[in-house]
Design a protein around this nucleic acid. Structure first.
Lengths: 151, 151
DNA sequence: CGTTCGGTGGGTAAAAGTGGGTAAAAATCC
DNA sequence: GGATTTTTACCCACTTTTACCCACCGAACG
């Protein structure tokens, strides 16, 4: 099971490629087999799922009730923009142009490990996202860490 | 289960490495396997969790529902600053540059055993922290010990 | 008084991140 | 359908960072 963590400031080259951080590569399950599914994030960012994690998302989608409007919306958001991608010889993946546009990504990216997926943000967009939040690191961390100690 | 205690005044070398105190190494669980997760502290300091302790936090993160905006925010906050680290042949770990900056660590560190984690402070920052506390040690201690005695 | 252990320093080979040329493949256009 | 352009994939090259190794010194210990 992959569990991605950490954040990195990397560059996007002229061909729209980004390096997958070495530490994240080490967390890939062997069954993911260096294959990914890239799709649109819920926020203005790009989600990158290794194949094995994506398989779980598809299972979840299968359980949704397609008669419900919100379930149909969720399904479309995830599937409409989904594309397969593979690492090249230098451990990079190419980001689809439409998604780069959607996420407002130009020359630099903020790569974020988010448990079951890797997120790719334009640095400014991530900052905007943070600014829009009411809670800060201390609040969030306290809640979850207390739970880890059985409280 | 690891239980770290004690405090040490050590140096950070030019490559950003610190020695993990020998007494703390002896307290490591075998299942931690000399692996750590380094992350941001609540105060301006660095938290170092052995793998087995970090796993508890990660279990809590796994319970979050990634379809909920707030849970996604929690996930991002908690994982953004976390990175894996391993002891080198001399029982040292490398501190990430960003966290050193956050904790204001230059050439020397104050290493503190804090039960389930190891804390790394800039000596001046720890002093500042102490000075800023309204309650003195005796007040805190009596509160905690009284609670432990069920009063 | 030699030997081990714990802390510190640093050289060097390997890995990681970045850039770009070129040929195959795909899409587009007479 | 065939030619042209665009896109994609694969390869090679360079620079920086990291990891691994060896080495030193002082303190503790037998």
């Amino acid at each position: 099971m992959s569990s991605f963590k950490g954040s990195y400031h990397y560059t996007v080259d002229s061909k729209g490629r980004i390096n997958v951080p070495a530490k994240m590569r080490k967390n890939l399950s062997p069954e993911a087999n260096s294959g990914f599914v890239i799709t649109r994030g819920f926020e203005p960012c790009i989600f990158v799922y290794p194949n094995d994690e994506w398989a779980k998302r598809e299972t979840e989608i299968g359980k949704l009730q397609q008669t419900k409007p919100e379930d149909r919306f969720f399904t479309r958001m995830l599937l409409q923009y989904a594309t397969d991608a593979e690492l090249d010889g230098q451990y990079r993946i190419a980001l689809p142009k439409e998604l780069m546009q959607y996420a407002n990504i130009k020359g630099e990216v903020f790569i974020l490990g988010a448990y079951d997926r890797i997120e790719v943000w334009a640095p400014e967009e991530f900052q905007k996202y943070l600014d829009a939040q009411q809670k800060d690191y201390l609040t969030v961390a306290s809640t979850v860490f207390d739970a880890a100690n059985g409280e």
